[in-house]
Nucleic acid binder design. Sequence first.
RNA 1: GGCGGCGUAGCUCAGUUGGUCAGAGCACACGGCUCAUAAUCGUGGGGUCGCCGGUUCGAGUCCGGCCGCCGCUACCA
Length: 505
Amino acid sequence: MPRFYVTTPIYYVNDAPHVGHAYCTVNADALARWHRAVGDEVFFLTGTDEHGQKVARAAEEHGVTAQEWTDRLAPRFAEAWAELEISNDDFIRTTEPRHRQAVQRFLGTIYDNGWIVKDTYAGLYCVDCEQYYAADELVDGNRCPVHGRVVETLEEENYFFRLSAFQDRLVEWYEAHPDAVVPESKRNEALSFIKGGLQDISITRTSIDWGVPVPWDDRHVFYVWYDALVNYLTAIGYGEEGPHGATFERWWPAVHHLIGKEIIRFHCVWWPAMCMAAGIDPPAAIQVHGWLLVGGEKMSKSKLNQITPGELIADFGVDAVRYHLLRDTPLGSDGELSVEGIVARYNADLANNLGNLVARVATVVGSKCAGVGPAAPASGRLARAVPGLVDEAVAGWARGLPHLGLEAAWKVIREANAELERVEPWKADPGPVVDDALGGALEALRLVALLVSPAMPGTAAEIWRRIGLPGVPGDGGPGHELAWGGYRGGVGVEKGPALFPRRRG
RNA sequence: GGCGGCGUAGCUCAGUUGGUCAGAGCACACGGCUCAUAAUCGUGGGGUCGCCGGUUCGAGUCCGGCCGCCGCUACCA
């Protein structure tokens, strides 16, 4: 059975969950749901990143310990994902003991292998940013470009990861795995960075203590990024003894990392190199997505332009929000998010096309077939046209591109609407012609429910139920359900209220 | 500056290896229908495929130049 281990980045708890986080998480969820539906064994991981100076400082400002602070913040993400009906199998927090152990094992192994060495780092440091700047990044010669604060020269004795030693191996890995990083433009970006020459990177800090202690030198903690990346290993039992440890072999390296374009370097350069240094394979797949923009700008805490998933769900419903995130912005591109845009797509795709099709079919089945759905016809226009479109949708989902899967599903909806218009069963007397027309439409709806179920599980299940089918879409066995002719008829069809009431504005 | 990408109908974008490639969806206009959530169906776009030149029997599709926009160019969640 094929295995699909999908991850989102772990989100930094100091930010509030917004639609940008939701975008990535919903995409990962849809892919996870699709793979489950086709019978793959799936493990879907998300979580929160909780170490680092910003968290420590925020906790201090609120007069609580860092642990108390993160205990307060992490649930906001878990709750946001519950609201969005995210089907993650695990939710990892980097402050958990299991993670501390995995980080220490993983980086300890790299140290034992000789890829981590002690050295001195000197640089221009902004205390507010908690980061070093290169001289040419500074404003007025000596001020931080973000805060305008005068930077200090700081010298720290740190442990360095010998990234420079992995340049050739990384290039070889990229060339041997041309599809490991997608889209291609992002792969090229990472590869050209690597080819431009790699420097060693400092991976520990002595200036803070809110982090995972370095096992061989407890005056240091690991810099938050090197701790964070390891979460992908922690959750599947890296380095553990016993039964849970065995799961690591099961899921690694068949992992599918979904990440935003701002963290390419960490995932596409440092992370594969660290895996190599620790003696495990680099991740099999890294899929890079773009940003959701508001008014042309990235959503961020500092710009106060964040939209929260909860607001949109309250307004449009969870499935409409999920659909919009998946359909409107192709993975890999940036997208503009606006209420106007959501309303437009909601009306066109969900209310007019899909919702209305469900309603009109149910009504005519009620008036012409006494409310009992006729079986799918073996031939006819839909029988000829739809299978190819189903294949197209399947291909889109299989490529990890939900917008393509959904786009093809909507072609099925259009075909079904057009065919109804052609035959006009509402004008005809009950009989074979009416039965075939409505049976075809019901079969199209059955297939559409299957194809959209990763995006809109609730809606898909409701369509399934209304057309008289038992269970939920996808539980009838992988693949088979996607063939034309699965709707056997003879079951009650229910009209029900509008699935997606049309919006006025 | 260097490397990479982009510029196709009002909008968002598809367009494999050059020859029905000038397209889709949305929006808009007109017509049909009235089963349906005033939904749906059909028809319509005369778009210099950023500009100039070249290769070719033939180029959004290859080559050169130019203009405009964007990304990356290291320790920024």
